[in-house]
Design a protein around this nucleic acid. Structure first.
Lengths: 250, 250
DNA sequence: CCGATCAAAATTGTACACAATTTATCAGTT
DNA sequence: AACTGATAAATTGTGTACAATTTTGATCGG
């Protein structure tokens, strides 16, 4: 058989354990439950299970080489995180994200990023700003070379840095949670083809950096929300067109 | 890469399930797990267990008249919500909230409320605004009569209405989660004695209502965050002084 | 008398068994 | 042949048993 789940799954941003405010537990003495939780979450976030697909417990148990008890515990947690849906006596399904759901999630992300920016202005060091500037120009390079992949990567890095600079663990956890939920659709749907929006996003990032330099919290908060709102529009638009094709076969 | 999952897309049943820890759900065919989850959460939020207090599973099982399995499932979920802490082989403890934790939570609440206000401006109806106005004046009445209890109650109602008007279920859930975490300390600590802050808060509420009437999203978002930031200062100050006395006997 | 070491009890982590509910299969009837 | 109903299989929900770890308690030595 196949491993089904790679061991060194790059769990980059999703370090924090849920909304808990992250006791950044070392990988050593993780209980079977925690291990299962992390692996299942990554598995789902990566989009390895079809939307709304039924997931028999037995099958997952075999896959993860554990018994049902820790698996079910993990499922309950994932349900509370919003990743799966638990239907009574009918098992767990990967929570389908409607157009509206995605819109809502993006708005919340916008609120959280706005908050992160505002708080970052209170705490960020010059060195951190310099680092973000560096990333910004790197991103600009990707933009010029039309390297979408590199662009997105650095883009996420910048937003992540801002969240870090907020010095707020609770915010960081919540952010990671919502990011994971969105990332699932982002995985199955490639965000390319938004060339016209690209330049606009790049300009928005200029203003973000500017506000950050001036430590203008309220202003930055506003800019970041609107930035995400624009992203939202593009994303929902994308899901609307691409989502159709995916669920078309009928 | 892995089929593994039959593509059975018959899921349309949108159970009002915990989206991020949302405490609103139908009381009908709750599984024992859900029932336990709700009851335990309420129990903890109400402050019935001392901070950091050990909570033997057996004891809780007797109290809730259930076996360990659903209880443990509930504990895992509460841990992911940040209410309790799970120490390996050492059981669950009510998560102690440091001064900093409380500050962080208040800031996140501020961000969420700001977001709620911004979104509310996009969706709120005149009737809803009228309702909030009514509550506002009711609250003002309590203020004039120096009725702290009534004031706080209506105050929470107003903030709740704004969240409702945002028309964002994900936000509502996250808000409920963080509100619960804060409420735990608010219960054990009576927020009285903040007379001087009271008038200021009342004035802030005037501006909130004003911005809401004008549907000035960005402005309202800013006001709401700053409003919560002021609350935060008062609350943290309170915990600093009162928290000492509370954790004395140990 | 106080502290350390080891055994006993209690508590937690996981697996498994059984009951309840849902889903699938298959007659029989129109 | 399609539909309805009953029955069988499978799956989920909950309780309990057992192993592993921690906490408690007692004995021994200083």
């Amino acid at each position: 058989m196949k491993p089904l789940i790679p061991d060194d799954t790059t769990s980059q941003a999703l370090t924090a354990q849920a909304l808990g405010g992250g006791p950044d537990r070392a990988r050593e003495d993780q209980s079977l439950h925690d291990e299962t939780l992390t692996r299942l979450r990554d598995y789902i976030v990566e989009g390895s299970i079809a939307e709304g697909g039924r997931v028999p417990e037995r099958q997952l148990c075999e896959m993860l080489k554990i018994s049902r008890t820790p698996l079910r515990e993990a499922l309950k947690v994932l349900a509370s995180e919003g990743l799966v849906e638990l239907l009574p006596n009918r098992g767990a399904r990967v929570r389908p994200l409607s157009e509206q759901d995605l819109g809502e999630l993006f708005d919340v992300m916008g609120g959280l990023e706005g908050l992160a920016g505002r708080l970052a202005c209170e705490h960020i060091t010059d060195a951190e700003i310099a680092e973000i500037e560096r990333l910004h120009y790197e991103m600009y390079g990707f933009y010029l070379h039309r390297d979408m992949h590199g662009y997105f990567h650095v883009n996420q890095l910048i937003h992540q840095k801002i969240v870090e600079a907020s010095r707020n663990a609770a915010l960081k956890s919540a952010y990671a949670n919502f990011a994971g939920r969105i990332r699932r659709v982002r995985y199955s749907a490639n965000f390319a083809r938004k060339r016209e929006r690209w330049g606009e996003a790049m300009r928005e990032h200029e203003t973000i950096l500017d506000a950050l330099r001036r430590r203008a919290g309220s202003e930055l908060s506003d800019i970041l929300f609107k930035h995400l709102r624009n992203k939202r529009t593009a994303a929902v638009e994308h899901l609307k067109t691409d989502g159709m094709a995916a669920s078309e076969p009928a």
